[in-house]
Structure formats: structure tokens, C-alpha cells
């Protein structure tokens, strides 16, 4: 049943310089209500003629998949599982605008075809020639967690040795306007972000292993604080840990009372100052936690962590008390 699962490769595009190195020397700070990704030179991984037709989210999704696979030395994949809340926003807007502008005429298929939420997972399968299990989760702020849990089940079922999992969301100018009108985005108060983080999870540890994925769960409308605490404790117990073993909590929350009551030995760091607020931000948190557990000093610096030795990291994100996300990562001996 339960099994060890390792993060053996990753690719991370974020508002920080996280693609070509674990973390840039200078931390980028939010100006205004939005943070946007620092994107790589896509021509390194994607053919020019394909690139032209791809929206940013598809580019980010494919580049991070490419990077993660390369990082993990290209293991054969048994599953590709994607998490995205907003999906392919740009192409959705494009197709919708043409429909409205031209009264349902003069349409071209490209934007429609690339607007579907499974575009990135499908494109990865296509480019990697992978007939394997392929899934796309679109559950708002727990889209990435849904993907992680699915991957864990496949490992437990002995259906997989290596799985690609990602969490991806893109901002657009129009989405920005909508988020400001909804008061989700507010300069200085609530900075919205975006990002693409991709992982190769493996059943075996390798020389490149970043960390062990020791647990993940998501809660829907938990009835009170106690039941959230109980769920976190259950995840810890399953990993043979107690709350005191947590060295670092990467928290996505304004109100951090719950995690502070529970994890009394931990340091706390708000990861969203680095990536902004977006539905799959926990994928970014997972990527930087993995880097940190592998001993990357620049990530530690960016998160302002003082502890010398970090063994166990809890990522906790509570979205409006509707969707709660809990991910637990542990250091491995290399």
C-alpha cells in the first residue's frame, strides 16, 4: 500500500529567477498588484514553428516539463498529471473575443483547440510520445494537490515508477482587470502571481533526489479549526512524525495562528511574497521546499530561514476556508 515517493527532478518558472538556477541572487519584490513570471528562452526546448502558436501557459508548461525530465535524467513516464485552475486563459479570451466581435463568424480553430484545460498535459504526452495515464485537474486552489494525490495513488497501486506532475496558472491583462474588479488583486495588499512548476516523482531515490514527498491531503469546507489540525496530525502520523518534528512551515496564509499553534518548533515563512497569490501557488512552494531540502542556500536566503538544518517542511494553504491544502516534504540522505 503506502510507499516512499521522491522528487527526482523539477522545473520551475516563477516571478523569481527559478528556471536556470534554484533561486536568483536578488529577490524580486512585488510592485503594484501583480507579479509575472521570468520566462526562459523557449527556443532552447521548443521548435520555432510550434512555439509561434503556443500561448504562454503552454510554453511554460512544456518548458518546465522539459527541464524536469532532463533534471531527472529522462526516466520513462508512467503518468502525466496536470493541475490548473484558470487553464489556458489567453486562448479562451482570444476565442471568446472573436466570437463576440464578429458575431460568431471568422473564427479559426487554433485558439479553441488550445483553450481546453487539458492542453498542456496533452501536449506533453504528444511531444514525449507518451501513451500513458494522462489527467488534468481543475479544482481551484487544490488543483495541484488533486494531481499529487492522484500520483500517490498510482504509486501505491504499483501502476507507476515515474510520474510527471505539474501546477500551472497564467495571468493575462484581462484576467488582471477582472481580479482587480473582484478585489482579489490589490496593490500592496494582495499581489496576484502566476507560475509553472513541474516535478518528476519517482518510486526510487536517485542521486538527484531533492526530497521525499511524505504526505499530501486536501480538505473541503472543514467544520472547524480542530478538524484541520486533526488532518495535519493524521498526515504527520502516517509519516511517523509529530508536529514538533516540523522545522519549517511554508504558509500561504494571512492568519497563521493554526500552524503556529500546531508546529511549535518550526520557523514560518510566507512563500507568496516570492510568487504572488494564484491557485497553484502550492506547486511553487513545493518546488522551493524541495530545493531547500536539497540544501540550496539561495532559496534559504530568499525565504529568510535561520535554521541550519531543515529536515521536514509543511506547506499549508487555506483558501477562504473552503479549500485547505497540506503537503509534507522530508529531507533524504544522499
Amino acid at each position: 500500500m503506502k510507499k516512499n515517493i521522491y522528487i527526482n527532478g523539477l522545473g520551475n518558472i516563477s516571478p523569481q529567477e527559478t528556471f536556470y538556477q534554484a533561486m536568483g541572487e536578488t529577490v524580486v519584490k512585488a510592485e503594484g498588484a501583480f507579479m509575472t513570471c521570468q520566462e526562459p528562452n523557449y527556443k532552447e526546448f521548443i521548435q520555432k514553428k510550434l512555439l509561434r502558436r503556443m500561448s504562454r501557459i503552454v510554453r511554460m508548461g512544456l518548458a518546465t516539463a522539459h527541464k524536469a525530465l532532463e533534471d531527472a535524467s529522462h526516466p520513462p513516464l508512467d503518468a502525466i498529471i496536470s493541475g490548473t485552475a484558470w487553464g489556458c486563459v489567453k486562448d479562451t479570451e482570444k476565442f471568446l473575443e472573436t466570437i463576440i466581435e464578429h458575431n460568431e463568424a471568422y473564427l479559426t480553430p487554433t485558439a479553441f483547440v488550445q483553450s481546453t484545460h487539458n492542453t498542456v498535459a496533452g501536449q506533453i504526452a504528444l511531444l514525449q510520445h507518451c501513451n500513458c495515464y494522462n489527467m488534468s485537474y481543475v479544482q481551484g486552489n487544490v488543483s495541484f494537490e488533486s494531481a499529487l494525490i492522484d500520483a500517490m495513488l498510482l504509486f501505491y497501486d504499483n501502476k507507476a515508477s515515474n510520474i510527471l506532475v505539474n501546477g500551472i496558472d497564467e495571468q493575462t491583462e484581462k484576467l488582471g482587470i477582472l481580479l482587480e474588479r473582484l478585489q482579489c488583486a490589490k496593490a500592496g495588499e494582495r499581489v496576484m502571481g502566476e507560475g509553472a512548476a513541474c516535478f518528476i516523482l519517482g518510486a526510487e531515490q536517485t542521486s538527484n533526489t531533492y526530497a521525499q514527498l511524505t504526505g499530501a491531503t486536501m480538505l473541503y469546507r472543514p467544520k472547524d479549526k480542530t478538524s484541520v489540525k486533526e488532518s495535519i496530525q493524521r498526515i504527520l502520523e502516517e509519516a511517523n512524525l509529530d508536529a514538533q518534528a516540523i522545522d519549517l512551515v511554508l504558509t500561504g496564509n494571512q492568519d497563521q495562528s493554526l500552524e503556529k499553534e500546531l508546529c511549535t518548533n518550526a520557523e514560518f515563512s510566507s512563500y507568496k511574497k516570492l510568487c504572488g497569490e494564484y491557485p497553484t501557488s502550492t506547486a511553487f512552494a513545493t518546488a522551493i521546499a524541495a530545493q531547500l531540502l536539497k540544501g540550496d542556500p539561495s532559496t534559504k536566503k530568499a525565504l529568510e530561514i535561520n535554521k541550519k538544518d531543515v529536515q521536514h517542511i509543511l506547506i499549508y494553504n487555506n483558501h477562504q476556508d473552503v479549500n485547505h491544502s497540506i503537503v509534507l516534504l522530508s529531507k533524504v540522505d544522499n
Partner: peptide, 23 residues
């Protein structure tokens, strides 16, 4: 996409895992 799933879950009073798939 997740909104209709949550409306469905709420209409049933279900509080276990809730998720949405788009393939």
C-alpha cells in the same frame, strides 16, 4: 470549472474530498 462541482457538493452537504477533472 470547479465552481459547479462545489455547488453540487454543497447541495448534497458532502464534506469529503471534492475535485474536478477536465480531460
Amino acid at each position: 470549472c470547479a465552481e459547479s462541482t462545489e455547488r453540487i457538493a454543497d447541495s448534497l452537504g458532502a464534506t469529503g474530498m471534492v475535485s474536478t477533472i477536465s480531460t
